[in-house]
Design a protein around this nucleic acid. Structure first.
Lengths: 276, 276
DNA sequence: TATAATAATGACCAATCAGTCATTTGTCAA
DNA sequence: TTGACAAATGACTGATTGGTCATTATTATA
């Protein structure tokens, strides 16, 4: 399990430098100081490594952002924190971001694209929730537009940091983006994304978080998490999925218990959105 | 020369589908219905093909957009037309856009990245000129921010079209983006990109358009353009670069003469910016 | 220390690639 | 019809790839 993490870490470094088509398994194992054969003890194939990296990166980002949006911060703080965390995460995981954060990047294999698509929709849902929380019903007609403007802001300023190599002032940028978003929210009269585009955002075909899927993820978690509050909470939560008996407050509390742990926080995100 | 165009056309199709790392020369020649050897009669290497494609796409886009910005349209029309043309061009050259329009895409070779960087800076300069023309001195402090917001808008809505496969309504979107840009231009008080970022935009190291470079491009044009107004204009303009004698009005007129021709319009762009 | 079980190795394989070049095909004028 | 030249071909090469597997090294157990 430790070896696996080492490979993923070195691999994403190389991918950010060269792209994964251009990075060979040999290069990865060389940088890890292990043999080529050892790679295939951790991953069945190079593709599986890439899928694992996408999962690791996207679940990390999405849970942290969703956590901010769902926190009980004031409306004023909320938008600022959202931008600030978002930008900070992209900096922290800049190797991942460089490798995967291009929407229609050449992920060649359909499998990769689908996965990114799925995570992207989850992310859009979170941003939509943010907009609704911050601006309430006043922005009903323009909320989808706001989601895309926010995405556009983040995209282009992140790119600026990647290209310019200047030390980023996330504080200043976040304040600036809050102002811009507020301006658009208050004055926009001509939204572009109206009803006909909305379905894209509202959980299409495979965007749904199913009970079975969550149970699967929990069982996976249980293999990796030792004794402790998290483990107990996981087991109780799994039982609740199959046979609900406990009151909502308790369930909420159990979800809270697994919010912080790096292995289980994705599960808490899934559950939180399952019970909404 | 015709063969070269065929190869470029089919190649960019395949690149948009698979990315160029994953596309083999054999695949390209198969789709063209020619042999592999014939490819190397038109291009010295696969890399040379990619560089040629970047040149073709970026010069096409940049000249057309710059042409709009430099036209004598009213301020009201200008911004709308800018968005409309920009979006239309991305649709027209969607295969190119899919392949190249990802800023930090894995163009692996330093050479590719540099080229894209260069063109990107030219594009930013054009957008800056647009902002200055439309909003005048009122936006002195926030103009660089506006440039990036405009880029962000275009980026994210283009992506939306690429992903959603819905028929795009450029008219509606352009109106919407005009409104958004106007809002930001009128009310923004907290710009992010101030003096310290500005140098990035103001013709750095290799962003300059040199006389020698233009002469080189003109000589290349002359090999491809037959007799006609364009050819005569090119020769006169080349002479003017080496030994200026004619008044500005005449030079402007000569540049106009080569504005429309597909082969020479990039030259007209270079000259226009050389004489500004 | 001896034995079993697991972890790690790297030579090897088949497939694929960009690029080459001897050969063939096509196209002229004489 | 012939011959000279250019255009086009595709079998071939050497290098690189993802992935395998017989062998070796390491660790744990008795």
């Amino acid at each position: 399990m430790l070896k696996k993490q080492l490979i993923m870490q070195k691999a994403v470094e190389l991918f950010a430098e060269q792209g994964f088509e251009a990075t060979s398994v040999q290069q990865i194992t060389d940088r890890c100081g292990i043999s080529k054969g050892a790679f295939y003890l951790s991953f069945k194939s190079k593709d599986e490594l890439i899928l694992a990296l996408i999962d690791q990166f996207m679940t990390e980002i999405i849970t942290d952002i969703d956590s901010i949006v769902k926190s009980n911060k004031s409306k004023d703080e909320l938008l600022f924190d959202f931008f600030y965390i978002n930008l900070s995460l992209f900096e922290k995981y800049s190797d991942y971001a460089k490798t995967f954060m291009q929407e229609q990047l050449h992920l060649i294999k359909e499998e990769f694209i689908e996965k990114m698509h799925y995570y992207n929709l989850l992310n859009e849902k979170t941003i939509l929730e943010l907009v609704e929380r911050v601006y309430g019903d006043h922005v009903q007609d323009i909320k989808y537009d706001l989601v895309y403007c926010i995405k556009g802001f983040i995209r282009i300023y992140t790119e600026l940091f990647f290209v310019s190599h200047t030390p980023p002032d996330f504080e200043k940028l976040s304040h600036s983006l809050v102002e811009k978003t507020n301006l658009l929210a208050k004055h926009t009269k001509l939204p572009f994304i109206t009803a006909e585009y909305a379905p894209l955002l509202q959980s299409p075909k495979n965007n749904e978080i199913s009970k079975e899927k969550i149970v699967e993820v929990i069982n996976q978690n249980l293999e990796e998490v030792e004794q402790g509050i998290e483990r107990e909470s996981l087991i109780l939560l799994r039982d609740q999925l199959n046979m609900p008996t406990l009151p909502r407050a308790i369930i909420k509390g159990l979800i809270r218990n697994i919010r912080q742990h790096p292995i289980t926080k994705w599960t808490s995100y899934l559950l939180e959105n399952y019970y909404d």
